[in-house]
Design a protein around this nucleic acid. Structure first.
Length: 512
RNA sequence: GGCGCCGUACCCAAGCGGUAAGGGAGAGGUCUGCAAAACCUUUAUGCGGCGGUUCGAUUCCGCCCGGCGCCUCCA
Protein backbone atom coordinates (compact mmCIF):
# COMPACT_ATOMS: atom_id res chain seq x y z
CA UNK A 1 0.00 0.00 0.00
CA UNK A 2 1.34 3.39 -0.91
CA UNK A 3 1.13 6.81 0.56
CA UNK A 4 -2.30 8.26 1.12
CA UNK A 5 -2.76 11.93 1.89
CA UNK A 6 -5.76 13.99 2.82
CA UNK A 7 -6.22 16.40 -0.03
CA UNK A 8 -8.13 19.57 0.74
CA UNK A 9 -8.87 19.61 -2.96
CA UNK A 10 -11.71 17.12 -2.87
CA UNK A 11 -11.66 16.83 0.91
CA UNK A 12 -10.72 13.21 0.95
CA UNK A 13 -7.95 10.76 1.55
CA UNK A 14 -6.27 10.11 -1.76
CA UNK A 15 -3.60 7.82 -3.07
CA UNK A 16 -0.53 9.93 -3.75
CA UNK A 17 0.68 9.83 -7.32
CA UNK A 18 3.43 12.23 -8.29
CA UNK A 19 3.53 13.83 -11.70
CA UNK A 20 6.91 12.30 -12.37
CA UNK A 21 7.37 8.84 -10.91
CA UNK A 22 9.70 8.86 -7.95
CA UNK A 23 9.93 12.63 -7.73
CA UNK A 24 8.01 15.13 -5.67
CA UNK A 25 7.81 18.89 -5.97
CA UNK A 26 6.69 20.28 -2.65
CA UNK A 27 6.03 23.89 -1.78
CA UNK A 28 5.42 24.82 1.82
CA UNK A 29 4.34 28.24 2.97
CA UNK A 30 7.09 29.83 4.97
CA UNK A 31 7.14 32.56 7.58
CA UNK A 32 6.45 36.24 7.34
CA UNK A 33 9.54 37.70 8.90
CA UNK A 34 8.47 40.81 10.69
CA UNK A 35 8.38 39.18 14.10
CA UNK A 36 9.45 36.04 15.87
CA UNK A 37 7.67 32.86 14.96
CA UNK A 38 5.49 31.56 17.75
CA UNK A 39 5.09 27.93 18.65
CA UNK A 40 1.87 27.72 16.68
CA UNK A 41 3.79 28.73 13.58
CA UNK A 42 6.43 26.22 14.41
CA UNK A 43 3.83 23.48 14.52
CA UNK A 44 3.26 24.13 10.86
CA UNK A 45 6.91 23.86 9.99
CA UNK A 46 7.34 20.67 11.95
CA UNK A 47 4.45 19.32 9.92
CA UNK A 48 6.03 20.37 6.62
CA UNK A 49 9.29 18.86 7.76
CA UNK A 50 7.57 15.62 8.68
CA UNK A 51 5.99 15.53 5.25
CA UNK A 52 9.32 16.09 3.49
CA UNK A 53 10.99 13.47 5.67
CA UNK A 54 8.19 10.99 5.11
CA UNK A 55 8.36 11.43 1.34
CA UNK A 56 12.08 10.80 1.36
CA UNK A 57 11.63 7.86 3.70
CA UNK A 58 9.21 6.37 1.22
CA UNK A 59 11.81 6.69 -1.48
CA UNK A 60 10.82 9.86 -3.29
CA UNK A 61 13.31 12.37 -4.47
CA UNK A 62 11.95 15.56 -3.00
CA UNK A 63 12.45 19.18 -3.90
CA UNK A 64 11.15 21.13 -0.95
CA UNK A 65 10.70 24.84 -1.56
CA UNK A 66 9.91 27.35 1.15
CA UNK A 67 9.28 31.04 0.74
CA UNK A 68 10.24 33.81 3.09
CA UNK A 69 7.71 36.61 3.03
CA UNK A 70 9.79 39.70 3.49
CA UNK A 71 7.55 42.13 1.71
CA UNK A 72 4.15 43.44 2.65
CA UNK A 73 3.52 44.92 6.01
CA UNK A 74 7.03 45.13 7.20
CA UNK A 75 6.79 48.69 8.28
CA UNK A 76 3.45 49.02 9.96
CA UNK A 77 3.12 46.90 13.01
CA UNK A 78 6.60 46.17 14.13
CA UNK A 79 5.74 47.60 17.48
CA UNK A 80 3.42 44.80 18.44
CA UNK A 81 4.57 41.66 20.11
CA UNK A 82 7.81 41.73 21.96
CA UNK A 83 8.64 45.35 21.57
CA UNK A 84 11.97 45.32 23.22
CA UNK A 85 13.46 42.86 20.83
CA UNK A 86 11.83 44.49 17.88
CA UNK A 87 13.02 47.87 18.95
CA UNK A 88 16.53 46.69 19.49
CA UNK A 89 16.42 45.14 16.07
CA UNK A 90 15.29 48.40 14.63
CA UNK A 91 18.00 50.23 16.42
CA UNK A 92 20.71 47.90 15.34
CA UNK A 93 19.54 47.57 11.79
CA UNK A 94 18.78 50.32 9.44
CA UNK A 95 16.36 48.93 6.93
CA UNK A 96 13.30 46.75 6.91
CA UNK A 97 15.28 44.29 4.85
CA UNK A 98 17.69 43.93 7.65
CA UNK A 99 14.89 43.46 10.11
CA UNK A 100 13.56 40.77 7.84
CA UNK A 101 16.99 39.25 7.77
CA UNK A 102 17.15 39.35 11.55
CA UNK A 103 13.90 37.45 11.93
CA UNK A 104 14.80 35.09 9.15
CA UNK A 105 17.92 34.12 11.06
CA UNK A 106 15.90 33.75 14.24
CA UNK A 107 13.45 31.56 12.38
CA UNK A 108 16.08 29.21 11.03
CA UNK A 109 17.75 29.04 14.41
CA UNK A 110 14.45 27.78 15.81
CA UNK A 111 14.10 25.36 12.94
CA UNK A 112 17.53 23.95 13.68
CA UNK A 113 16.70 23.48 17.33
CA UNK A 114 13.59 21.60 16.34
CA UNK A 115 15.65 19.39 14.06
CA UNK A 116 13.79 20.63 11.02
CA UNK A 117 15.74 19.95 7.86
CA UNK A 118 16.41 22.97 5.77
CA UNK A 119 14.28 23.02 2.63
CA UNK A 120 16.15 22.50 -0.61
CA UNK A 121 15.21 25.96 -1.78
CA UNK A 122 14.50 28.92 0.46
CA UNK A 123 13.39 31.93 -1.51
CA UNK A 124 12.78 35.51 -0.54
CA UNK A 125 9.88 37.39 -2.00
CA UNK A 126 11.92 40.55 -2.40
CA UNK A 127 14.29 38.78 -4.76
CA UNK A 128 11.56 37.52 -7.02
CA UNK A 129 9.61 40.63 -7.82
CA UNK A 130 10.50 40.28 -11.48
CA UNK A 131 9.00 36.83 -11.53
CA UNK A 132 5.85 38.18 -9.93
CA UNK A 133 5.62 40.96 -12.46
CA UNK A 134 5.87 38.52 -15.34
CA UNK A 135 3.20 36.37 -13.80
CA UNK A 136 0.91 39.35 -13.42
CA UNK A 137 1.56 40.30 -17.04
CA UNK A 138 0.43 36.88 -18.12
CA UNK A 139 -2.74 37.33 -16.10
CA UNK A 140 -3.22 40.70 -17.67
CA UNK A 141 -2.76 39.24 -21.13
CA UNK A 142 -5.33 36.59 -20.32
CA UNK A 143 -7.86 39.22 -19.27
CA UNK A 144 -8.08 38.50 -15.57
CA UNK A 145 -7.12 41.92 -14.31
CA UNK A 146 -8.40 45.45 -13.98
CA UNK A 147 -6.85 48.63 -12.72
CA UNK A 148 -8.77 50.66 -10.19
CA UNK A 149 -7.92 53.31 -7.66
CA UNK A 150 -4.22 52.95 -8.24
CA UNK A 151 -4.04 49.20 -7.77
CA UNK A 152 -4.22 46.25 -10.11
CA UNK A 153 -6.84 43.68 -9.15
CA UNK A 154 -7.58 40.10 -10.04
CA UNK A 155 -11.15 39.79 -11.26
CA UNK A 156 -12.52 36.61 -9.74
CA UNK A 157 -15.64 36.71 -11.88
CA UNK A 158 -13.45 35.81 -14.86
CA UNK A 159 -12.27 32.66 -13.16
CA UNK A 160 -15.29 30.34 -12.95
CA UNK A 161 -13.81 27.80 -10.57
CA UNK A 162 -12.76 30.46 -8.10
CA UNK A 163 -13.09 29.25 -4.53
CA UNK A 164 -13.72 25.65 -5.45
CA UNK A 165 -11.26 24.20 -2.97
CA UNK A 166 -12.64 26.27 -0.12
CA UNK A 167 -16.24 25.70 -1.08
CA UNK A 168 -16.87 29.39 -1.55
CA UNK A 169 -19.98 30.47 -3.36
CA UNK A 170 -19.56 33.69 -5.21
CA UNK A 171 -23.24 34.57 -5.27
CA UNK A 172 -23.43 34.45 -1.50
CA UNK A 173 -20.47 36.61 -0.96
CA UNK A 174 -22.38 39.60 0.31
CA UNK A 175 -23.49 37.71 3.38
CA UNK A 176 -19.94 37.50 4.59
CA UNK A 177 -19.06 41.10 4.04
CA UNK A 178 -18.61 42.16 7.60
CA UNK A 179 -15.52 44.12 6.87
CA UNK A 180 -15.49 47.24 4.84
CA UNK A 181 -15.25 46.41 1.23
CA UNK A 182 -12.56 48.11 -0.74
CA UNK A 183 -14.59 50.50 -2.87
CA UNK A 184 -12.28 49.97 -5.79
CA UNK A 185 -13.13 46.31 -6.05
CA UNK A 186 -15.74 45.14 -8.49
CA UNK A 187 -16.30 42.09 -6.41
CA UNK A 188 -15.50 41.68 -2.73
CA UNK A 189 -13.44 38.57 -3.48
CA UNK A 190 -11.21 40.39 -5.93
CA UNK A 191 -7.72 40.86 -4.62
CA UNK A 192 -4.77 43.07 -5.35
CA UNK A 193 -1.99 41.88 -7.59
CA UNK A 194 -0.01 45.07 -7.55
CA UNK A 195 -0.23 48.04 -5.23
CA UNK A 196 0.81 51.51 -6.16
CA UNK A 197 -1.25 53.05 -3.40
CA UNK A 198 0.24 51.67 -0.26
CA UNK A 199 -1.91 50.88 2.72
CA UNK A 200 1.08 51.72 4.78
CA UNK A 201 2.25 55.29 4.82
CA UNK A 202 5.88 54.43 4.99
CA UNK A 203 5.99 51.35 2.83
CA UNK A 204 9.71 51.03 2.48
CA UNK A 205 10.10 48.55 -0.33
CA UNK A 206 8.97 49.59 -3.76
CA UNK A 207 9.68 48.48 -7.27
CA UNK A 208 9.00 49.85 -10.70
CA UNK A 209 6.42 47.98 -12.69
CA UNK A 210 4.24 48.38 -15.76
CA UNK A 211 1.49 49.63 -13.41
CA UNK A 212 3.63 52.13 -11.60
CA UNK A 213 6.00 52.12 -8.70
CA UNK A 214 4.73 49.98 -5.88
CA UNK A 215 4.82 46.49 -4.50
CA UNK A 216 3.20 43.12 -5.16
CA UNK A 217 0.13 41.69 -3.48
CA UNK A 218 0.86 38.97 -1.03
CA UNK A 219 -0.62 36.05 -2.91
CA UNK A 220 1.45 36.58 -6.01
CA UNK A 221 4.67 35.66 -4.35
CA UNK A 222 3.78 32.05 -3.71
CA UNK A 223 2.50 31.50 -7.22
CA UNK A 224 5.50 33.06 -8.86
CA UNK A 225 8.18 31.46 -6.74
CA UNK A 226 6.70 28.00 -6.58
CA UNK A 227 6.41 27.86 -10.33
CA UNK A 228 9.89 29.20 -10.79
CA UNK A 229 11.42 26.39 -8.77
CA UNK A 230 8.96 23.58 -9.28
CA UNK A 231 7.47 24.20 -12.68
CA UNK A 232 3.99 25.24 -13.72
CA UNK A 233 2.52 22.09 -12.33
CA UNK A 234 3.73 20.33 -9.23
CA UNK A 235 2.66 17.83 -6.64
CA UNK A 236 2.16 19.20 -3.15
CA UNK A 237 1.44 22.55 -1.61
CA UNK A 238 1.15 22.70 2.16
CA UNK A 239 0.21 25.43 4.56
CA UNK A 240 -1.93 26.40 7.50
CA UNK A 241 -5.63 25.66 7.56
CA UNK A 242 -6.36 29.37 7.80
CA UNK A 243 -5.07 29.90 4.29
CA UNK A 244 -7.62 27.72 2.56
CA UNK A 245 -10.27 30.34 2.02
CA UNK A 246 -8.18 33.29 0.97
CA UNK A 247 -4.52 32.88 0.34
CA UNK A 248 -4.49 29.48 -1.29
CA UNK A 249 -7.72 30.13 -3.10
CA UNK A 250 -6.19 33.22 -4.61
CA UNK A 251 -2.97 31.45 -5.42
CA UNK A 252 -4.89 28.88 -7.38
CA UNK A 253 -6.82 31.53 -9.27
CA UNK A 254 -3.66 33.40 -10.15
CA UNK A 255 -1.59 30.44 -11.10
CA UNK A 256 -4.16 28.64 -13.15
CA UNK A 257 -5.33 31.92 -14.64
CA UNK A 258 -1.80 32.54 -15.87
CA UNK A 259 -0.99 29.09 -17.20
CA UNK A 260 -4.42 27.77 -18.09
CA UNK A 261 -3.44 24.48 -16.51
CA UNK A 262 -4.10 22.72 -13.27
CA UNK A 263 -1.45 23.93 -10.89
CA UNK A 264 -1.12 21.79 -7.75
CA UNK A 265 -2.39 18.26 -7.33
CA UNK A 266 -2.39 17.86 -3.55
CA UNK A 267 -3.15 20.51 -0.98
CA UNK A 268 -2.29 19.69 2.60
CA UNK A 269 -3.34 21.84 5.49
CA UNK A 270 -2.13 21.73 9.05
CA UNK A 271 -4.45 22.47 11.94
CA UNK A 272 -3.83 25.00 14.66
CA UNK A 273 -2.21 24.78 17.98
CA UNK A 274 -4.70 26.29 20.39
CA UNK A 275 -4.42 27.66 23.88
CA UNK A 276 -7.04 27.46 26.60
CA UNK A 277 -8.22 30.86 25.58
CA UNK A 278 -8.33 30.05 21.92
CA UNK A 279 -5.78 30.35 19.20
CA UNK A 280 -2.47 32.01 19.64
CA UNK A 281 -2.22 35.53 18.39
CA UNK A 282 -0.28 38.62 19.08
CA UNK A 283 -3.22 40.75 20.02
CA UNK A 284 -4.82 38.29 22.42
CA UNK A 285 -1.62 37.62 24.26
CA UNK A 286 -0.18 34.20 24.79
CA UNK A 287 2.47 34.75 22.18
CA UNK A 288 4.77 31.88 23.03
CA UNK A 289 7.98 31.36 21.18
CA UNK A 290 10.36 28.45 21.24
CA UNK A 291 12.56 30.60 23.40
CA UNK A 292 9.75 30.96 25.92
CA UNK A 293 9.79 27.20 26.25
CA UNK A 294 13.54 26.75 26.37
CA UNK A 295 13.83 29.53 28.92
CA UNK A 296 11.35 27.61 31.02
CA UNK A 297 13.67 24.63 30.96
CA UNK A 298 12.20 22.61 28.12
CA UNK A 299 14.22 21.46 25.19
CA UNK A 300 13.12 22.22 21.68
CA UNK A 301 12.80 18.53 20.94
CA UNK A 302 10.38 18.15 23.84
CA UNK A 303 8.13 20.41 21.84
CA UNK A 304 8.71 18.46 18.66
CA UNK A 305 7.80 15.29 20.51
CA UNK A 306 4.71 17.02 21.86
CA UNK A 307 3.64 17.89 18.32
CA UNK A 308 4.32 14.43 16.98
CA UNK A 309 1.91 13.04 19.54
CA UNK A 310 -1.05 14.53 17.71
CA UNK A 311 -2.11 14.18 14.11
CA UNK A 312 -1.36 17.25 12.00
CA UNK A 313 -5.01 17.63 11.03
CA UNK A 314 -6.28 17.83 14.59
CA UNK A 315 -6.30 20.95 16.62
CA UNK A 316 -3.85 20.47 19.40
CA UNK A 317 -4.36 22.04 22.77
CA UNK A 318 -1.15 23.49 24.11
CA UNK A 319 -0.58 23.36 27.83
CA UNK A 320 2.43 23.16 30.07
CA UNK A 321 0.97 19.99 31.55
CA UNK A 322 0.97 18.51 28.10
CA UNK A 323 4.48 19.68 27.47
CA UNK A 324 5.61 18.25 30.81
CA UNK A 325 4.18 14.96 29.77
CA UNK A 326 5.98 15.12 26.44
CA UNK A 327 9.22 15.96 28.15
CA UNK A 328 8.94 13.09 30.60
CA UNK A 329 8.08 10.81 27.75
CA UNK A 330 10.97 11.88 25.60
CA UNK A 331 13.42 11.62 28.46
CA UNK A 332 12.29 8.10 29.02
CA UNK A 333 12.69 7.41 25.31
CA UNK A 334 16.17 8.87 25.27
CA UNK A 335 17.12 6.88 28.35
CA UNK A 336 15.92 3.71 26.71
CA UNK A 337 17.85 4.33 23.54
CA UNK A 338 21.00 5.10 25.49
CA UNK A 339 20.59 1.97 27.57
CA UNK A 340 20.17 -0.14 24.46
CA UNK A 341 23.19 1.46 22.93
CA UNK A 342 25.24 0.57 25.97
CA UNK A 343 24.03 -2.97 25.71
CA UNK A 344 25.56 -3.07 22.26
CA UNK A 345 28.98 -2.32 23.65
CA UNK A 346 30.01 -0.37 20.62
CA UNK A 347 28.41 -2.81 18.20
CA UNK A 348 26.35 -1.67 15.25
CA UNK A 349 22.56 -1.66 15.03
CA UNK A 350 21.18 -4.38 12.83
CA UNK A 351 20.85 -3.46 9.15
CA UNK A 352 17.24 -3.31 7.99
CA UNK A 353 17.55 -6.32 5.75
CA UNK A 354 18.41 -8.66 8.60
CA UNK A 355 16.08 -7.42 11.32
CA UNK A 356 14.36 -10.05 13.40
CA UNK A 357 10.68 -10.68 12.53
CA UNK A 358 9.34 -8.80 15.54
CA UNK A 359 11.34 -5.67 14.78
CA UNK A 360 10.52 -5.99 11.13
CA UNK A 361 6.82 -6.16 11.96
CA UNK A 362 7.10 -2.94 13.94
CA UNK A 363 8.79 -1.26 11.03
CA UNK A 364 6.07 -2.41 8.68
CA UNK A 365 3.41 -1.04 11.02
CA UNK A 366 5.38 2.17 11.32
CA UNK A 367 5.51 2.60 7.58
CA UNK A 368 1.81 1.88 7.32
CA UNK A 369 1.12 4.59 9.88
CA UNK A 370 3.19 7.12 7.98
CA UNK A 371 1.61 6.14 4.70
CA UNK A 372 -1.79 6.66 6.24
CA UNK A 373 -1.75 10.44 6.00
CA UNK A 374 1.29 10.84 8.21
CA UNK A 375 -0.06 9.37 11.40
CA UNK A 376 2.80 10.32 13.65
CA UNK A 377 0.93 9.30 16.82
CA UNK A 378 0.70 5.73 15.59
CA UNK A 379 4.25 5.91 14.32
CA UNK A 380 5.40 6.92 17.76
CA UNK A 381 3.52 4.00 19.26
CA UNK A 382 5.48 1.64 17.00
CA UNK A 383 8.72 3.27 18.02
CA UNK A 384 7.88 2.59 21.65
CA UNK A 385 6.78 -0.86 20.73
CA UNK A 386 10.03 -1.89 19.15
CA UNK A 387 12.05 -0.41 21.98
CA UNK A 388 10.06 -2.22 24.66
CA UNK A 389 9.22 -5.49 23.02
CA UNK A 390 10.58 -8.54 24.79
CA UNK A 391 12.82 -10.73 22.74
CA UNK A 392 14.00 -8.00 20.40
CA UNK A 393 17.73 -7.57 20.75
CA UNK A 394 19.32 -4.19 21.36
CA UNK A 395 20.83 -4.27 17.89
CA UNK A 396 17.49 -5.03 16.26
CA UNK A 397 15.61 -2.49 18.33
CA UNK A 398 18.06 0.27 17.51
CA UNK A 399 18.26 -0.70 13.88
CA UNK A 400 14.52 -0.27 13.56
CA UNK A 401 14.31 2.79 15.81
CA UNK A 402 16.97 4.73 13.94
CA UNK A 403 15.22 4.02 10.70
CA UNK A 404 11.94 5.29 12.13
CA UNK A 405 13.66 8.39 13.36
CA UNK A 406 14.43 9.42 9.81
CA UNK A 407 10.80 10.49 9.76
CA UNK A 408 10.28 11.47 13.37
CA UNK A 409 13.41 13.58 13.60
CA UNK A 410 14.01 13.14 17.31
CA UNK A 411 17.76 12.91 16.87
CA UNK A 412 17.89 9.41 18.30
CA UNK A 413 20.89 8.19 16.38
CA UNK A 414 23.12 11.04 17.46
CA UNK A 415 22.27 10.69 21.12
CA UNK A 416 25.20 10.08 23.36
CA UNK A 417 25.54 9.81 27.03
CA UNK A 418 27.21 12.94 28.25
CA UNK A 419 30.83 12.01 28.36
CA UNK A 420 32.33 11.96 31.79
CA UNK A 421 35.20 13.85 30.25
CA UNK A 422 32.88 16.76 29.62
CA UNK A 423 32.54 17.20 33.33
CA UNK A 424 35.20 19.17 35.09
CA UNK A 425 37.85 16.61 36.12
CA UNK A 426 38.28 18.10 39.57
CA UNK A 427 34.56 17.84 40.15
CA UNK A 428 34.51 14.31 38.85
CA UNK A 429 37.31 13.31 41.20
CA UNK A 430 35.52 14.88 44.12
CA UNK A 431 32.30 13.10 43.27
CA UNK A 432 34.08 9.81 42.88
CA UNK A 433 35.64 10.31 46.30
CA UNK A 434 32.29 11.04 47.90
CA UNK A 435 30.73 8.04 46.28
CA UNK A 436 33.56 5.90 47.58
CA UNK A 437 33.16 7.31 51.04
CA UNK A 438 29.47 6.55 50.96
CA UNK A 439 30.19 3.01 49.90
CA UNK A 440 32.44 2.58 52.90
CA UNK A 441 29.82 4.05 55.21
CA UNK A 442 27.19 1.75 53.76
CA UNK A 443 29.39 -1.24 54.29
CA UNK A 444 29.85 -0.21 57.91
CA UNK A 445 26.09 0.20 58.14
CA UNK A 446 26.55 3.87 58.90
CA UNK A 447 23.46 4.77 56.96
CA UNK A 448 23.20 8.16 58.53
CA UNK A 449 26.49 9.19 56.99
CA UNK A 450 25.67 7.48 53.70
CA UNK A 451 22.35 9.26 53.39
CA UNK A 452 23.93 12.55 54.32
CA UNK A 453 26.31 12.24 51.41
CA UNK A 454 23.47 11.33 49.12
CA UNK A 455 21.45 14.35 50.26
CA UNK A 456 24.36 16.68 49.88
CA UNK A 457 25.02 15.58 46.34
CA UNK A 458 21.36 15.80 45.48
CA UNK A 459 21.34 19.39 46.66
CA UNK A 460 24.21 20.04 44.29
CA UNK A 461 22.38 18.57 41.34
CA UNK A 462 24.12 15.22 41.31
CA UNK A 463 22.08 12.07 41.20
CA UNK A 464 23.36 8.78 42.54
CA UNK A 465 22.25 5.50 41.11
CA UNK A 466 22.79 2.34 43.06
CA UNK A 467 22.87 -0.90 41.22
CA UNK A 468 24.15 -4.39 41.96
CA UNK A 469 27.34 -3.41 40.18
CA UNK A 470 27.96 -0.44 42.42
CA UNK A 471 27.05 3.21 42.50
CA UNK A 472 27.33 5.69 39.67
CA UNK A 473 26.59 9.37 39.56
CA UNK A 474 25.25 11.68 36.94
CA UNK A 475 24.32 15.30 36.68
CA UNK A 476 20.69 16.28 36.96
CA UNK A 477 18.39 16.04 33.93
CA UNK A 478 18.72 19.63 32.84
CA UNK A 479 22.16 18.83 31.53
CA UNK A 480 21.91 15.14 30.91
CA UNK A 481 21.97 13.69 27.55
CA UNK A 482 19.29 14.91 25.31
CA UNK A 483 20.69 17.54 23.01
CA UNK A 484 21.31 15.95 19.69
CA UNK A 485 23.91 17.28 17.39
CA UNK A 486 21.72 17.80 14.44
CA UNK A 487 23.27 16.93 11.17
CA UNK A 488 22.58 19.42 8.46
CA UNK A 489 20.64 21.76 10.66
CA UNK A 490 23.66 23.47 12.03
CA UNK A 491 23.49 27.15 12.83
CA UNK A 492 24.88 28.02 9.45
CA UNK A 493 21.98 30.39 9.17
CA UNK A 494 23.60 32.87 11.44
CA UNK A 495 26.19 33.51 8.83
CA UNK A 496 24.38 32.78 5.62
CA UNK A 497 22.24 35.43 4.08
CA UNK A 498 18.77 34.33 3.05
CA UNK A 499 19.53 35.54 -0.42
CA UNK A 500 22.21 32.95 -0.86
CA UNK A 501 19.74 30.20 -0.19
CA UNK A 502 17.21 31.83 -2.44
CA UNK A 503 19.60 31.92 -5.34
CA UNK A 504 20.47 28.28 -5.08
CA UNK A 505 18.99 26.21 -7.86
CA UNK A 506 16.79 23.27 -6.91
CA UNK A 507 18.59 20.15 -5.98
CA UNK A 508 21.95 21.62 -5.35
CA UNK A 509 21.27 23.18 -1.99
CA UNK A 510 23.10 21.51 0.83
CA UNK A 511 20.85 19.23 2.72
CA UNK A 512 21.22 17.04 5.70
C1' G B 1 -24.85 35.18 8.74
C1' G B 2 -21.66 31.54 5.63
C1' C B 3 -17.99 27.43 5.81
C1' G B 4 -15.38 23.70 8.62
C1' C B 5 -13.55 20.87 12.85
C1' C B 6 -13.80 18.48 17.58
C1' G B 7 -15.90 16.04 22.26
C1' U B 8 -12.38 8.63 23.73
C1' A B 9 -9.64 6.67 30.97
C1' C B 10 -6.86 11.37 36.02
C1' C B 11 -4.18 14.15 31.65
C1' C B 12 -2.42 14.24 26.35
C1' A B 13 -3.89 11.34 22.30
C1' A B 14 -4.67 7.11 18.25
C1' G B 15 -8.54 4.18 16.30
C1' C B 16 -13.47 5.64 12.48
C1' G B 17 -18.42 -0.81 11.03
C1' G B 18 -16.44 -6.35 14.23
C1' U B 19 -15.80 -5.60 19.85
C1' A B 20 -10.82 0.42 22.82
C1' A B 21 -2.82 2.01 20.18
C1' G B 22 0.85 4.71 22.63
C1' G B 23 2.73 8.16 26.18
C1' G B 24 2.35 10.88 30.89
C1' A B 25 0.49 10.49 35.80
C1' G B 26 -1.21 6.94 39.62
C1' A B 27 -1.10 1.93 41.86
C1' G B 28 1.31 -2.90 42.77
C1' G B 29 5.80 -5.72 42.29
C1' U B 30 11.31 -6.86 41.56
C1' C B 31 15.80 -4.63 43.27
C1' U B 32 17.48 -1.67 47.83
C1' G B 33 19.51 -0.89 54.68
C1' C B 34 15.78 2.85 53.23
C1' A B 35 15.25 5.57 48.96
C1' A B 36 16.15 7.05 43.99
C1' A B 37 16.90 5.08 39.23
C1' A B 38 15.82 1.02 36.30
C1' C B 39 12.76 -2.96 34.93
C1' C B 40 7.97 -5.73 35.08
C1' U B 41 2.66 -5.61 35.83
C1' U B 42 -1.65 -2.77 36.09
C1' U B 43 -5.58 1.26 35.16
C1' A B 44 -12.24 2.74 29.83
C1' U B 45 -17.99 -3.69 29.47
C1' G B 46 -16.45 2.17 27.82
C1' C B 47 -15.74 6.24 23.49
C1' G B 48 -20.67 14.02 25.30
C1' G B 49 -26.42 12.88 25.38
C1' C B 50 -30.82 10.81 22.95
C1' G B 51 -32.77 8.30 18.86
C1' G B 52 -32.04 5.59 14.07
C1' U B 53 -29.60 2.19 10.28
C1' U B 54 -27.07 -2.69 10.95
C1' C B 55 -26.31 -9.50 12.71
C1' G B 56 -23.08 -5.96 15.04
C1' A B 57 -21.56 1.35 15.99
C1' U B 58 -16.77 4.70 19.53
C1' U B 59 -16.87 4.23 14.20
C1' C B 60 -22.59 5.57 9.53
C1' C B 61 -27.31 8.96 9.77
C1' G B 62 -30.49 12.62 12.53
C1' C B 63 -31.32 15.80 16.59
C1' C B 64 -29.52 17.96 21.12
C1' C B 65 -25.63 19.68 24.54
C1' G B 66 -20.58 21.46 25.01
C1' G B 67 -15.84 23.35 22.87
C1' C B 68 -12.88 25.41 18.75
C1' G B 69 -11.28 27.41 13.99
C1' C B 70 -11.83 30.20 9.30
C1' C B 71 -14.54 34.05 6.49
C1' U B 72 -9.06 40.32 8.43
C1' C B 73 -1.66 40.11 3.97
C1' C B 74 -2.67 35.16 11.10
C1' A B 75 0.40 28.72 10.69
Amino acid sequence: MGLRLYNTLGRSLQEFEPIQPGKVGFYGCGPTVYNYAHIGNMRMYVFEDTLARALRYLGYEVTHVMNITDVGHLSGDADSGEDKMVKSAQERHKSVLEIARYYTDAFFADEAKLNILRPDVVCNATEHVDDMISLIRRLEANGYTYFSGGNLYFDVSKFPSYGEMAGLKLDELKAGARIEVDANKRNPYDFVLWFTKSKFEDQALQWDSPWGRGYPGWHVECSAMSMKYLGEQFDIHAGGIDHVAIHHTNEIAQSEGATGKKWVNYWLHGEFLVLDKGKMSKSAGGFLTLKTLTDAGYEALDYRYFLLGAHYRSQLQFSYDGLDSARASRRSLVERVLALREKLHGGEPTPLATLCPAAKARLVAFKAAIEDDLSTPRALAELWGVLKEQGVSAADALGAAFDMDRVLGLGLESLAREAQAAVDPALAAELDALVAERAVAKKAKDYKRADAIRDELKARGVILEDSPAGTSWKLAPSVAGATPSVAGATPSVTGATPSVAGATPPGSAPRA
